[in-house]
Nucleic acid binder design. Structure first.
Ligand code: MN
Ligand code: MN
Ligand code: ZN
Ligand code: ZN
Lengths: 142, 142
DNA sequence: TCAATAGTTTAGAATTATTATAATGTAGTT
DNA sequence: AACTACATTATAATAATTCTAAACTATTGA
């Protein structure tokens, strides 16, 4: 989804009814310069603030999954205890800051192309993703 | 922990009391030819079968985390909905079979060394791990 | 040897993330 | 406007994990 588009149209195109909640969610998610990473709770807060009224948690879950199914969002597995989503749905790699729990995209130029030499019979590779865990570099530690 | 060792000694060495539950858990985990991947529920079943009596879930969680803290187990993040652990605590990469939800180690020879060219000021890299998602290759799909 | 102590196990309750339910509401169509 | 299909909501249910506090046990050292 390009930025600044009419989300009413966009939602219709993918067969999702453009309800008030969905249009607001799309604006929060896609009407911005850069892609970003979020948790469901982040998103609930952002949408509620934008709408100036509460949105139900269930709606946010439902709509996130609807957008994910349509290919507009991607789930990122980093932490077994919480789901992170990404508005950047292209294949890409991440830094995960273990101090702040923030995700940062790696640029293509930051890493060489990865070549997997093994293949498992009857199985095809769906994705190859790298997770680089970083944490504050306190040189004052034993 | 090498295989076939005396886990009573091993546990003492790392400062964990060698209780019946822990010794049995260690035998299930480490007294085998190859390292393996498991979920907490897998492990509860395996230990209960070995001991021929039930072991409390809380004990398994506690002990897994104790062993993890001592560096004998590693948690693997693949799926935000369940924790996987690995008795192979060395840095290594994985295949994840999306059909069976099985984890398989990649050998060193299966992939080139990964070089991260970006660095984040004040942060050091803790790990660089690759996850290769695979699924059955049905060429008979539209 | 055995009591004191510190650490461990346990059942069950609590917490958290997520999903299901079912009643109510709304968008799209005629 | 009326009909219908789909969406939203509050709330309940579920599942993974952690907490609690009482009972238990390994270790120590008198
Ligand atoms: Mn999910
Ligand atoms: Mn964990
Ligand atoms: Zn990303
Ligand atoms: Zn592994």
């Amino acid at each position: 989804m390009p930025k600044n588009c009419n989300f009413i149209e966009k939602l219709r195109e993918v067969g999702l009814r453009p309800t008030k909640q969905r249009v607001n969610m799309c604006e929060v998610l896609f009407n911005r310069e850069k892609t970003f990473h979020f948790t469901i709770n982040d998103l609930v807060k952002m949408i509620s603030e934008k709408m100036n009224e509460k949105i139900s948690l269930a709606t946010v879950y439902n709509t996130v999954h609807a957008l994910e199914k349509k290919g507009y969002l991607k789930e990122i597995s980093i932490d077994s205890h919480k789901s992170y989503f990404d508005t950047n749905t292209l294949a890409h790699h991440h830094f995960f800051d273990e101090d702040t729990h923030e995700l940062i995209d790696l640029n293509e130029s930051d890493i060489d192309k990865i070549n997997i030499r093994k293949n498992i019979t009857g199985k095809k590779i769906n994705s190859v993703e790298v997770l680089v865990r970083v944490a504050s570099d306190n040189q004052n530690q034993k």
